[in-house]
């Protein structure tokens, strides 16, 4: 890899998947790219005035308007006849929840924009509160486990399905643990004529609580357990599924993370665990993940 377009010196935590994800995205997109980011960890760790880690033009406006602001950028570039990539990179809070209206508007208007969500499954920047992306049973600071609670009571929102429902030409999931796959998907997304959505599993060390050295292993286990299938849709059709060469038990993935530890301490959580296993099995069957 040549010099990264995300300069070192940013303030992200050691063991955070987000900067690695961004570097891979920028590596694939190249320097002829404008990035728009909503408020979040990415924004606060990379742009403490007067410093910036961004070696491509970068715009931050607000938490819930990156898609709208990027639409404005894209329209102006088209108007000026410039062929520059427009890439939104934001976390799951802005993507799944607060920015949904503006995301939907951008998809529906058909802007040629790649939306990359680095998905760490909660509001990490504000201290690990539940988002629409938080999976079932996850302990967050607003869905804590307790005597009357087993963590988040609801499953993760199916954001790729929402993106697909807009009829956009390219939707895919990816993982920081599969860099070749991730880079290829970024390149493909930038080729299509219209909006594209890429959702990348990006473990957060403070929110998920794991050993910093295991970040990539954890992301790989999410895929190998069947909980994070790597999928690729073109024009609404499923065209790519990453096969799992060695399927791993769901517990192996969950046990490495503090956010699931209550599931292994309380006898009444056995049912919850089996529900999570069912989710993985459903994915494996639905997408034919294992040969």
């Amino acid at each position: 890899m040549d010099k990264s377009l995300l300069a070192p010196g940013h303030r992200a935590c050691a063991g955070c998947a987000m900067p690695t994800t961004i570097r891979l995205v920028l590596d694939a997109a190249g320097p002829n790219t404008i990035v728009v980011s909503p408020t979040g960890c990415l924004e606060v760790t990379t742009t403490p005035f007067p410093e910036s880690s961004w070696c491509v033009p970068w715009l931050h406006s607000l938490f819930e308007n990156a898609s709208a602001a990027a639409s404005g950028v894209e329209v102006m570039l088209k108007r000026r006849g410039k062929d520059t990539n427009v890439v939104i990179i934001g976390g799951d809070g802005s993507t799944f929840d607060i920015g949904m209206g503006s995301n939907s508007g951008m998809f529906e208007r058909g802007h040629k924009i790649l939306y990359v969500c680095y998905d760490n499954e909660a509001y990490m920047n504000t201290g690990v509160q539940r988002s629409g992306s938080t999976p079932f049973c996850v302990h967050t600071t607003t869905t804590p486990s307790g005597s009357q609670s087993q963590g988040n009571p609801r499953p993760k929102k199916d954001m790729p399905a929402i993106a697909l429902a807009h009829g956009i030409p390219y939707v895919a999931t990816a993982s920081v643990a599969y860099p070749v796959d991730l880079r290829r998907k970024v390149k493909r997304a930038l080729e299509v004529n219209g909006p594209s959505y890429l959702q990348v599993n990006a473990p957060c060390i403070t929110g998920w609580t794991f050993d910093a050295g295991t970040m990539i292993e954890l992301a790989r286990l999410a895929v190998e357990s069947g909980l994070w299938p790597l999928l690729e849709y073109e024009k609404g059709e499923l065209v790519g599924v990453k096969k799992i060469r060695r399927p791993r038990p769901v517990e192996e993935y969950l046990k490495l993370q503090g956010r699931y530890k209550h599931l292994f301490k309380k006898a009444e959580c056995a049912d919850m665990l089996s529900q999570i296993k069912d989710m993985a099995l459903t994915n494996m069957a639905k997408y034919n993940l294992v040969d």
Partner: peptide
């Protein structure tokens, strides 16, 4: 999709 987006689009327009 909203007035919120209406003005937000112009942030991008202006920045470009």
């Amino acid at each position: 999709d909203s007035e919120f987006s209406a003005l937000s689009v112009l942030v991008g327009v202006c920045a470009a």
